[in-house]
């Protein structure tokens, strides 16, 4: 944790500088008759962020913050495994949205999580993986008129049937 805290502070300091650089593409000072420039607000706030990372590093050096006193790992083997399984599942879910549509990706993610990670029965898994995407479809597309990503063209026939029902 101790090493992780100072690395995080360093990354955030670099991020603050990055934000200052981007903000400085617009005027950052006071322009007579026009007020503060468009970049002033984010630039000076990023500057404050940079200063606070200095304080965080100072506190780390003096071991006054709890993470700076801890010698334990940021994530242990269980933590990394959980992060890989859940984070990887989410990543796969979002990648699949553009391929098999929001509803298709939702069904695949639910099968992955409920059956593989949760070890629930196939019956429960399939009920959830089929019923939820349909419920979401009718709520968002039917009631709220919000169109979710429909994926690649091969999902077209399925959508034709579904739109036939709601319109």
């Amino acid at each position: 944790m101790r090493l992780g805290e100072i690395i995080t502070a360093g990354v955030l300091a670099l991020f603050s500088i990055f934000l200052m650089y981007y903000s400085a593409q617009l005027p950052i000072g006071y322009e007579q008759g026009r007020g503060p420039g468009g970049g002033a607000w984010p630039f000076w706030l990023s500057g404050i962020m940079l200063v606070t990372t200095g304080f965080i590093a100072w506190n780390w050096y003096r071991k006054t913050s709890p993470p700076s006193q801890s010698e334990g790992p940021v994530l242990d083997s269980y933590g990394w495994k959980m992060f890989a399984q859940v984070g990887g599942g989410l990543l796969g879910f979002i990648i699949l949205i553009d391929i098999i549509s929001m509803y298709g990706a939702m069904a695949v993610f639910l099968v992955y999580y409920v059956r593989i990670l949760g070890r629930h029965s196939w019956l429960l898994t399939l009920i959830l993986a089929i019923a939820l995407p349909f419920a979401f479809f009718f709520f968002f597309e039917g009631l709220m008129r919000i169109t979710m990503p429909s994926g690649m063209s091969f999902t077209g026939p399925f959508y034709d049937i579904m739109y036939e029902i709601i319109y």
């Binding site: 939702m106 999580y113 629930h120 939820l132």
Partner: peptide, 9 residues
């Protein structure tokens, strides 16, 4: 294990 995927969805 059911609530968590629902929240993610």
């Amino acid at each position: 294990t059911i609530l968590a995927p629902l929240i993610f969805v």
